[in-house]
Design a binder for these strands. Structure first.
Lengths: 257, 257
DNA sequence: CTTGACTCTGCACGATATTGCACGAATTCT
DNA sequence: AGAATTCGTGCAATATCGTGCAGAGTCAAG
């Protein structure tokens, strides 16, 4: 049994079961617990999993991660959402990605907007169900619990039959060289597909995502039409993106209206 | 059971139910109350929940949202949901209809249940996204805003490719002569389709629906396997349904556990 | 072919974490 | 007020962890 092989297996088990018990896994593989523990320690050092007493959990498991992010839904995301919502023209077909920022966008849609919103996020669909005039088209598929969106072949097929005018894409990183990135390979593939089915792709980027990079590339920067950033973001990075012909729009500071 | 995992579970239950009883949760997990109390204390120290006598509540922010959910979830629907959740065997494929009663059902699924839940209700999908062990398959389609479920030809096509073991169907009327009925023709058609793709169809009926009829028939009584009714419902009507070979199960009255 | 450097693995052992129980204090219910 | 829970702490048993160390295997240079 190769070390690398074993480590791959560990990550596979984590993805499958969402947990790994050091003791039982060692027995299963016929190696000592020490070896497994060593593997776990090393993988944890690389940030590939979360080491806990007794075994390991996925790095950013569905168990702890999403709700934590949910609570970070700050007012800046609402501002981004509002700025994005204003870009939508009546009658357009808009694809809304999952994630808290896009959920904010859904919440900010003008109540008199007539448009078709397509989404693979059940949360966004629920949010829009009480909007009086937009049509909502839900993409089905297997629910990916980490980010609560539909994924898999069913989703991909449904998406491939649709052409949207705008895609508001959620990312976890946006970097001049690595482009738009996210933390999951399959997720990246789905986003890429949606992006290519859409007239233009717009990224809503909170400050911490600008200049950051995650493991999986969705698309290179060239395929992104615009970036909407928070007010107060460092102007330097914006210039960097503008230099590759991307529009960088700044969300307005809060105003009394 | 890893300690970290258990703590994550505690927070999940808190988000799901809005509260946690130390004693019953300890029993549910098969650990001592001391262990749970210790966890609660530690989580409280991190500000992740609010410790109260007998158990815990979500950390302040979410507390406000609990009474809201509590009110929409009348206790009788929760009871119906619980009774229904117990009918699901591990490994089964279950189709969950939309509606508040089925949302309750989703909320009541045992945390250790391994099954596949299919639904065309984004609300149910969101609710189940934080369930640790069920797979969730979302049916896409145009969102019908009145009942917040996906409908239309896309949904019908996706449904027709699936065979489920059980279908928990929401209805607005259940009458010995008109059968199961609902208020919208297209909705009735979709429910009928799901019912015919499923091994058995089970209706969760709150008291006001028994003996009532709505404009559109979904299926005749003969195609319904069981009805789950609230405790305290008039026994006469149950006999009527039993006479056409339908099992009528009664949800248990609340018990102290 | 031999030697030496290197890696991987399993074992030993002290350190640390977790758990369940006991018991008195605090809280809630009646 | 009195009974019944629930709570918190101390404690002992057990499980798990991390580290140092030695043997086995690998590989490349000599």
């Amino acid at each position: 049994m190769l070390t690398t092989e074993r480590k791959a297996l560990i990550q596979q088990v984590l993805r499958r079961d969402g947990r790994l018990i050091a003791k039982s896994f060692a027995y299963e593989l016929g190696v000592s617990e020490d070896t497994i523990r060593r593997d776990l320690r090393e993988l944890a050092a690389e940030g590939l999993l979360q080491r806990v007493h007794g075994g390991a959990l996925p790095a950013s498991s569905a168990t702890a991660d999403y709700p934590a992010r949910q609570s970070t839904a700050s007012s800046s995301k609402a501002l981004l959402g509002l700025a994005a919502a204003r870009l939508i023209q009546p009658g357009q077909i808009v694809f809304l990605d999952g994630g808290t920022t896009n959920l904010q966008l859904a919440r900010q849609l003008p109540l008199d907007l007539k448009a078709t919103i397509i989404t693979h996020s059940p949360s966004v669909a629920v949010e829009l169900a009480c909007h009086p005039s937009v049509d909502v088209e839900l993409i089905g598929g297997r629910i990916f619990k980490h980010s609560i969106v539909a994924m898999g072949s069913t989703s991909a097929e449904a998406i491939s039959r649709i052409r949207a005018d705008i895609f508001f894409m959620g990312v976890t990183g946006l970097h001049p060289e690595t482009g738009a990135t996210t933390g999951n390979g399959e997720e990246a593939a789905i986003k890429r597909l949606i992006s290519r089915q859409s007239g233009e792709t717009i990224v809503l980027a909170t400050e911490e995502k600008l200049g950051a990079a995650s493991p999986y590339q969705i698309v290179p920067l060239a395929e992104i039409a615009s970036i909407i950033r928070e007010p107060g973001t460092d102007e330097k990075s914006s210039r960097l993106f503008r230099s590759v012909a991307i529009k960088v729009l700044q969300a307005n500071a809060p105003k009394q209206d």
